[in-house]
Computed example of a mutant assay.
Amino acid sequence: MADSNTVKYNAPALDKGLDILEYLSKERIPLTQAEIAQGINRTPSEIYRMLVCLEERGYIVRGANAGKYRLSLKMYSLSHSHTPFDELKRVAHYPMQMLSEVTRQSCHLSIMNNDQLLIISQMRSPSAVSLSIEEGTHFPLSMTSSGITFLSTLSKKERLNILSRDAYYKKWSKEEKDALNQEIELVKEQGHRYAKSKLTSGVTDISVPVGNNTELKAVLAVSVFTSTLEEELDVQTIIDSLKHTQEQINKLIGG
């Protein structure tokens, strides 16, 4: 519900309409006008016009018998005409460009796809020599810093369900599995992961989670040559830059 203490410009009618949509989405069952009003701390008369308007615009549907309201498929249709990951790539472009320029390293953005890590965007380093991870490439979640970072954003139940299908994880001993789960918990606590790559010798990965508390989750990472990191670059500077970029992207996607 809208918090009047944080709203700079009031739009009462819009607030009521959004409250109705959000409440119906949360409850997931058809509700009467009185039930909706009670749920959003309004009176039935306050929301009558909003219900009529939302029904006329096709956002909600009223049952013929009990007169209960439910969400239509209109919002689903609108949201799928432009996927959230397309929008994520768009808004992340400039922050990633700034991150690449500040760190002088390439950075990449990834999501989970079919229980694997999928690179959806990359920003190349302005330096003459740098690492490159091509968009569209898949990697195992359990073997990458970005994958482990992504797993840290999930509940334990979700995480174990996904790992039960991971080709590497299934072959590991109990000790190896426990070690991975401890790594995941550490990432959740610290908010980032910094470790040498398990897949590519001589490479170190630094990653942070990006996204909101719904289905939109991703990972932003910088991969550097380990020798360069040890001799020329400051790890904390990269971590700080990653987290600054993380904040910028989260703000742009409403996270």
Score class of each variant (00 low, 15 high):
1 M>D: 05
3 D>K: 12
7 V>K: 13
8 K>E: 09
8 K>L: 12
15 D>G: 06
17 G>L: 13
18 L>W: 10
18 L>G: 11
19 D>H: 13
22 E>V: 05
23 Y>K: 11
23 Y>W: 05
26 K>G: 01
26 K>M: 08
29 I>L: 05
35 E>G: 00
47 I>T: 09
48 Y>K: 15
50 M>Y: 07
55 E>Q: 12
57 R>T: 07
62 R>D: 01
68 K>Q: 14
69 Y>H: 10
71 L>G: 08
79 S>Q: 10
87 E>S: 08
94 Y>N: 08
95 P>K: 06
100 S>W: 00
103 T>P: 02
108 H>V: 09
110 S>A: 15
110 S>I: 04
111 I>F: 05
121 S>E: 11
127 S>G: 07
127 S>M: 11
128 A>R: 13
129 V>F: 13
131 L>Q: 01
133 I>H: 10
134 E>M: 06
137 T>N: 08
138 H>Q: 15
140 P>L: 07
146 S>M: 14
148 I>G: 01
150 F>A: 02
154 L>I: 01
157 K>G: 02
158 E>G: 01
161 N>R: 11
166 D>P: 05
168 Y>I: 09
171 K>Q: 14
171 K>W: 01
171 K>E: 10
173 S>M: 03
178 D>C: 07
182 Q>V: 08
182 Q>Y: 11
184 I>D: 02
185 E>K: 11
192 H>N: 03
196 K>T: 03
197 S>V: 06
205 D>A: 10
213 N>V: 07
221 A>V: 02
226 T>W: 03
231 E>S: 14
236 Q>H: 10
239 I>K: 11
242 L>W: 08
244 H>M: 14
250 N>Q: 12
251 K>N: 10
255 G>S: 15
